[in-house]
Write a protein that binds this DNA or RNA. Sequence first.
DNA 1: GTCCGGCCACAACCAGTGGTTGTGGCCGGG
DNA 2: CCCGGCCACAACCACTGGTTGTGGCCGGAC
Lengths: 311, 311
Amino acid sequence: MDLDTVRTFVAAADARQFQEAAAELAVTQQAVSKRIAALERNLGVRLFTRTARGAELTIDGQAFLPHARELLSAAERAAASVRTGRRPLRVDVIASRVAATGLMRGFHRAHPEIELDVLMLFDIETAVAAIRSGSIDASFRAVVAPGRPLPEDIAAVRVLDEPLQLLTGPAHALAGARSVPLARLAGHRIWMPGIVPGTEWAAYYDDLVAEFGLSIEATGPNFGSDALLDTIADTPALATFMGERTRLVWPAGHDLRRIPVTDPAPVYPHSLLWHRDNPHPALAALRAHLAAAAAGRDTAGTWVPGWAIPR
Amino acid sequence: MDLDTVRTFVAAADARQFQEAAAELAVTQQAVSKRIAALERNLGVRLFTRTARGAELTIDGQAFLPHARELLSAAERAAASVRTGRRPLRVDVIASRVAATGLMRGFHRAHPEIELDVLMLFDIETAVAAIRSGSIDASFRAVVAPGRPLPEDIAAVRVLDEPLQLLTGPAHALAGARSVPLARLAGHRIWMPGIVPGTEWAAYYDDLVAEFGLSIEATGPNFGSDALLDTIADTPALATFMGERTRLVWPAGHDLRRIPVTDPAPVYPHSLLWHRDNPHPALAALRAHLAAAAAGRDTAGTWVPGWAIPR
DNA sequence: GTCCGGCCACAACCAGTGGTTGTGGCCGGG
DNA sequence: CCCGGCCACAACCACTGGTTGTGGCCGGAC
């Protein structure tokens, strides 16, 4: 199945005759006839009944038509996604932290007419470079690691503080706790595979460890959240941190516990970064939406790294 | 943009190298290279950065990737829509009556995982023939016109009674009424363009006219609902019938009135028709959904033609 | 530093897809 | 009954899109 053929099918269905469709597509009637015949051969069904005054859709053809239109519009959207100028708003979200994705879903629900593309870049350096080059329009990050101020032309606001919870298996020493003070975690093994040194995410946990004397192991490759959950569920001595907004599904039989952390609650400070000169109209809408969503949230009793931008 | 090229792009993005993608697609590495180069030329952006150990997606490539996947899955759905055996459930709804479409939307909301194709066939003869031949799985109709019983192998249940309302312009004699008894419509001109003689829809209005002494004009071609609304709005002497569930948008400045009809309220008896032997699993789900939706509705004070199937 | 291996790009060549023109059959209306 | 309009089939041709062959580049090992 090829897109030109599908386009021909739609044109013929709309015109209700091959001749006119051919004129519209600037080919001969014979070409249209051959394309439709080829499409019918590929699909294995008759799409038109040929009459002396044109061509009528068969029932199969009527069923196929909306799918054909959808296919063409998907092609149009695909091409638009990389068109320079008036392309969809491109937003980078930090991997492994699902809260930013949730914010973007909320924005999409509030503004379904705004075209969005969501990416996950590697780290904040890449994100900032992409914002400066115009490759992306905005990025959800914890803002810059200590000692590396943002360039002048990049703006940032803190838009969401996501509390971290402890995730344990049923046999863990803290599995029964309703909540646990941060200081009580000293001495427990906390495993966070997949943290890449040098990223702003790693800097966050470095600060957390230094300030509260935790021991976080980032050893081993990240085999994905399934493997992580498997291990946490089966290993009494291990726990991990997980954003409170992260929605996970785990296999039946894994009796995992989410335990809020308090005194203070460590929160991950998601911020939105963008280029001050970016004229994309949807960017203003995104900023307004996030500002409205963040308003009124309380920061008492929470901890963020000293280098997090203020609210 | 052609689908083979897009498939190649996705394979290369997944494999993170052209060579492996080529093996997967059973072509040479050179062919993949040429396809990707052609795609990049068409789109006007670089999709991969070529390295000595493979090919990495650029940011544009990352933005394009989900659209490419969507495009391929749209192609898959399009092909599936005409695949014999295990194709989406195909349901015919009567044109110009929007209530059946509403029922199908409700069904889709309740079962988003069930693939659906909605068609609008010409009349009940066509629909019954299509059901018997297996071209469609079900049809929303008012069931058969008088004197033409359904074939033995077709089953039917009445699933929705849709009250008709009178639609008038602001200068119509009845424009100010909160409701109007059916008998009061005698002598008023009611215009229903587009009724095709011989259809079950025409039979419905024939009976309505005969029983209550109305005068319904079906003259003139149907130029679509926009033209109908224009005329109704501007012509004090004309009114038309419209299903209570029909959602219309009319241009600003048209002050149209919807007036319920009573004593009795004429209702259009939508029924679901299907083939007794149709094994499509989604058909059972549709019947169950409609039965649940129809339960408990009251038929007191309403009128249906004598030939409507009982509830 | 140098060599080697892996991967991608360019060039030349060839087959087959997909277009064109020419023509015939069919159906409906005047 | 003939004419006009529309679609299908046939023959032909160009160019797209594949193949093989080869070269350049980069990174790791020695």
